[in-house]
Design a protein around this nucleic acid. Structure first.
Lengths: 233, 233
DNA sequence: AATATACGAGACTTGATAGTTTCGGAACTA
DNA sequence: TAGTTCCGAAACTATCAAGTCTCGTATATT
């Protein structure tokens, strides 16, 4: 999408290149150290989580990555382009959508989703998102990208797990399904961004046992299911 | 609390004042035009909605309010103090803590709390709140102020209403009481800040009927109540 | 060896903006 | 009337940070 991707900053298409054909140009001189890319992106995320988008400076990022600013600007054209790529980088490997837990009960699945690093990293991601506020307000496209990177994977995972539990007959199909898939994600974000408290394993379990599962058990059923219930009762 | 309130910027306690006694000092000169306060605060909200917190400049605010910057700085000590007051100004009268509804049922009370102007609704408020993201993540003091102005009033109102319903015997005392008082507030903020959708009356009712009340009905009871239930079942 | 590019470090330039001061004029007090 | 404070407008100062450039050095091609 808006992706302002890596860019050997227009080094190509200059007639003097030995290999003029559109293929890979053979350039003399030291090669770029590809591993610095990830270092810089991770440094960017660290700074973003610590001071937010508007507090982030290129000097901080360079210092954190132990890189020179020239090295950063050789790879990204601007601060915004760097931040956008960092967000994209963050989204990788969050929730493994192809290997969701399957313990037999919804409660077991939801709790299995809470791995030690997802508590810590989840909070980290939430802080990163919070720090983006101003940018989000300006660029709806980026807002979607960030939301998709840090929020929707969790919502979708909960969606799958809840739907599966309903299919098993563990719960009835609720009327406000999509609202329920956002309970944990919403309240965890609120805890970090507004209350400014830690998201612990215990807190997440209190959301599951104290809010989501009870709500699911007693929520008004969707129309079809509700008609059945009305007929029976 | 942290409130950086209006401040005749330390004009007081200077020996030369005619009325030295601690009472209200009679000062010569033109009076401050109190109506400019609201104009400036509303201009601040307009700018905040348009460009977000980090994009807001004092020149923009002054221009929007057709005021001089000196007039702004005569009333607020800093940009942050102005923004905080503007947020407080916006959320004024959202919840009237001294006249909470009392309809006889929790559902009735919660829905009565949703008055047209008390709902965070419409593109305007969404944009204002969206622009605050960076503010929240950066400065704990500012975040507390915003939290106190825009969030806690709701949480406290829900706390009172739910406690009253429990006292009436409408629901049992739940184990995770304080978590439940934050359900609606958390999910409404998430909708505004992350999903970037409107918080409509229908959405709030879906939170009440689809999440909060069902959760309250089926939540695990607090220890004392749970023991009773165990004895009965 | 000669040349070209990458690297970290950091100086430098330039633009933006928070906050201050000045100005001419209006409104209030004594 | 004289003195004081407020007003909007705008010039001014000081700070901060994005982006560029230089330096000494390391690593690549020819």
């Amino acid at each position: 999408m808006t992706s302002a991707r890596h860019h050997p900053v227009q080094a190509a298409h200059e007639g003097r290149a030995p290999e003029d054909s559109a293929g890979q140009e053979v350039r003399p001189g030291r090669k770029r150290d590809a591993s610095r890319d990830a270092d810089i992106l991770e440094a960017t995320l660290d700074v973003l989580a610590r001071v937010g988008y508007s507090g982030l400076t290129m000097d901080m990022v360079a210092a954190q990555a132990k890189a020179g600013k020239a090295t950063v600007y050789r790879r990204w054209a601007s601060r915004d382009a760097l931040v956008i790529d960092a967000i994209a980088h963050m989204s990788r490997g969050m929730v493994d959508r192809d290997h969701l837990p399957d313990t037999g009960t919804l409660r077991g699945d939801l709790i299995a989703l809470i791995r030690p690093q997802s508590v810590v990293e989840g909070e980290y991601r939430i802080k990163v998102m919070g720090g983006l506020g101003a940018l989000l307000a300006q660029d709806p496209g980026l807002a979607d990208a960030v939301n998709g990177a840090a929020n929707e994977p969790w919502v979708e995972a909960h969606e799958v797990l809840i739907r599966r539990a309903i299919a098993r007959g563990e719960y009835a199909e609720p009327e406000y399904f999509s609202t329920l898939t956002r309970v944990v994600s919403s309240m965890a974000m609120h805890r970090v961004l507004i209350q400014r408290q830690e998201v612990t394993r215990e807190f997440l379990i209190s959301l599951i046992d104290g809010v989501l599962l009870p709500a699911l058990r007693c929520a008004p059923a969707a129309r079809a299911a509700r008609d059945d219930a009305a007929a029976a009762g």
